[in-house]
């Protein structure tokens, strides 16, 4: 999605670009409890791969763990979604795909069914419980809201084009809207900080 931004100074436009890139919270798997993993891949490896699977995100229903009312470390149903993989026994070599990731919440699920997680040989098993949380791309790239967030110049001054491409976790429109909100709240926060400063 490309939008033309007119009349805004470059600094604002770029701030929006940067926020769209990784300032909007999205879901990603954050904690993995490995129950059984006899695959060739290490637990860390499986967890890392799970973390990088983009998940569909509903920003209205969920809160970020730091802002959630539960204030618990493990989280509650408002800030955390459990996803489970249980490969079961197999007697052929097969690949586990993101389609086998079953979520406790229908809205939070893998963007694509075709993301390979690990290949299992006959007799190998994988059983994990994964917890997805909202997070910011500045903490880890798995929470990056947009793939592409590009600000390009036009011939006219103070006119820029912002192009967004997403992983599918959120739509570009959602990101843009959330991004503007985020920018506003950050500016608000900044204003607040300044006002609290004593001359």
């Amino acid at each position: 999605m490309s939008v033309k931004i007119k009349g805004a100074p470059l600094q604002y436009a770029n701030a929006l670009r940067r926020i769209c890139l990784n300032g909007v919270p999205v879901f990603a798997i954050d904690t993995v409890d490995v129950i059984d993993n006899s695959s060739v891949m290490s637990d860390e490896g499986v967890a890392h791969r799970l973390g990088l699977i983009p998940l569909k995100t509903d920003l209205k229903r969920f809160a970020e763990p730091s802002k959630c009312s539960c204030q618990s470390k493990s989280g509650c149903s408002n800030c955390r979604v459990m996803l489970v993989i249980d490969s079961g026994e197999t007697d052929t070599t097969r690949t586990i795909y993101s389609s086998e990731l079953s979520s406790e919440d229908d809205t939070v699920k893998a963007v694509s069914d075709k993301i390979p997680i690990v290949q299992l040989a006959p007799g190998q098993k994988l059983k994990v419980e994964a917890y997805a949380r909202l997070g910011r791309g500045s903490d880890h790239a798995k929470w990056n809201s947009a793939n592409v967030s590009v600000l390009t110049h036009t011939d006219k001054p103070d006119e820029y084009v912002l192009t967004l491409e997403t992983t599918g976790a959120l739509s570009p429109e959602q990101i843009l809207v959330a991004g503007v909100d985020e920018l506003e709240s950050r500016l608000q926060e900044f204003k607040q900080t300044i006002s609290e400063l004593k001359a």
Binding site: R17, R18, L21, N22, G137, S138, A141, N144, N147, V148, S149, V150, T152, T163, E165
Partner: peptide
């Protein structure tokens, strides 16, 4: 940081 790095028009 990702957002600090240079980018092309293609992204």
């Amino acid at each position: 940081r990702y957002e600090d790095l240079p980018y092309t028009a293609e992204g």
